[in-house]
Nucleic acid binder design. Sequence first.
DNA 1: AAGTGGTCTAGACCACGAA
DNA 2: TCGTGGTCTAGACCACTTA
Lengths: 239, 239
Amino acid sequence: MKKMPAYVKVYKGLKAEILDGEFEVGELLPTETALEDKFKVSRTTIRRAMELLARERFVSIKQGRGTVVLDYKTRQNLNLVTSISETLRKKGYTVKPRSMYIDEVKATLKQQENFGELETETLIRIQRVQLADDKPIAIMRNYLKADMVPEIKLHVNKFTSLYEFLESKYNILIDSASNKITAKIASFTEAEMLGINPGDSILHISRICYCREEAVCLDSISIVGDFYELEIFMEGRYK
Amino acid sequence: MKKMPAYVKVYKGLKAEILDGEFEVGELLPTETALEDKFKVSRTTIRRAMELLARERFVSIKQGRGTVVLDYKTRQNLNLVTSISETLRKKGYTVKPRSMYIDEVKATLKQQENFGELETETLIRIQRVQLADDKPIAIMRNYLKADMVPEIKLHVNKFTSLYEFLESKYNILIDSASNKITAKIASFTEAEMLGINPGDSILHISRICYCREEAVCLDSISIVGDFYELEIFMEGRYK
DNA sequence: AAGTGGTCTAGACCACGAA
DNA sequence: TCGTGGTCTAGACCACTTA
């Protein structure tokens, strides 16, 4: 368990206050100098926390004006990193893994490249079939660097959302991810695992998860096609 | 002409050097203290520039080790609003429509809701089969509000990328879009149109395109599953 | 043990927006 | 003009990797 930096504390503190409704949507946050006093840290640290909030679109920072709390309730428009289980739970489904298997595997060359570290040799592999309201909906495989998650095997079957688990247990906050999405046909094996027919459609997501610009988790997710709908928002046309 | 901050200068300088091949992929960048001397700025400024480079995946910063130059040639795209044709062209394919048909249709209730205007009655419908290197890869249907694109019928078969066309001809810049993505099985009709077999996989995208918060175009795109891979980048995490 | 990046401070001055 | 956020400095100490 890593120590939590001051700017993360400030970030979490402010976010909690915003979510608790202590600052109204559309209103200005206290000024940065005021927050220095409140949290007893320097302005640099406050600004770093503010930047995190702004990147998540909780606030909008305007020079000469102040920092406005944005309407985080009614925005549908963000591409936040959420796991499938989190998304489904938010829609009202009861999500849990039917079974979970954790082992160690040798990293392939492609996996090493995705991690940006050719030295990484051993990966932790987590395999699950995820259930929504007791119906199988996804086969999930996650690959983690072994040294990042010591003793994770002890927690087999003890968590449903890996991202939430990584955050609470190992203080690894997944803050960005790149996805490759394709449509496939279910193989015999996949169909058996998901209780569908071979030839049914499958939405496949290959994802690299990052924590502070460092790749921490590779995901391979196969979701029953007629069940899940991936929602994505795109923004900006000129870079 | 606005002044360029020091950290942007450092960022651009380093990026240019990396692109010029002055630092080999996989090698370490000079240490932050060394860069202080080189650019004559403080370490804070250097670090800010480094953070920009890291966010674009040009480098990977490792405590205790150094900052490694990543393989920027194969780095993933961010998710700007790009049409399928633009994406494919960027990858080197020759993209053109096999045929295009433009007509007027009555708006369905769902379409009216998506446009946020129940008064809209008539929509322009554009239907195409898109070819990449002469091979059919997607069925595209676009619905536009009739009054936004007067005389568009005169331009049938005269454009390949609708978004580029809307921009140049009607000054409609699509600046954001929300997408719903599912995996499907090709129907007989779809298979016929795309030259594949019924039962093959199809990636279906249902998209609402916005210009300055106003919905301007509804897209329905069916892409041959084993051909296209949608790349999406996510950032931030809601808690 | 040495050297790297990670965090943090206290203070300075600049640029922009609103009164 | 005043107060906001934007940039930048010089220096301190911590945490991690490697030798």
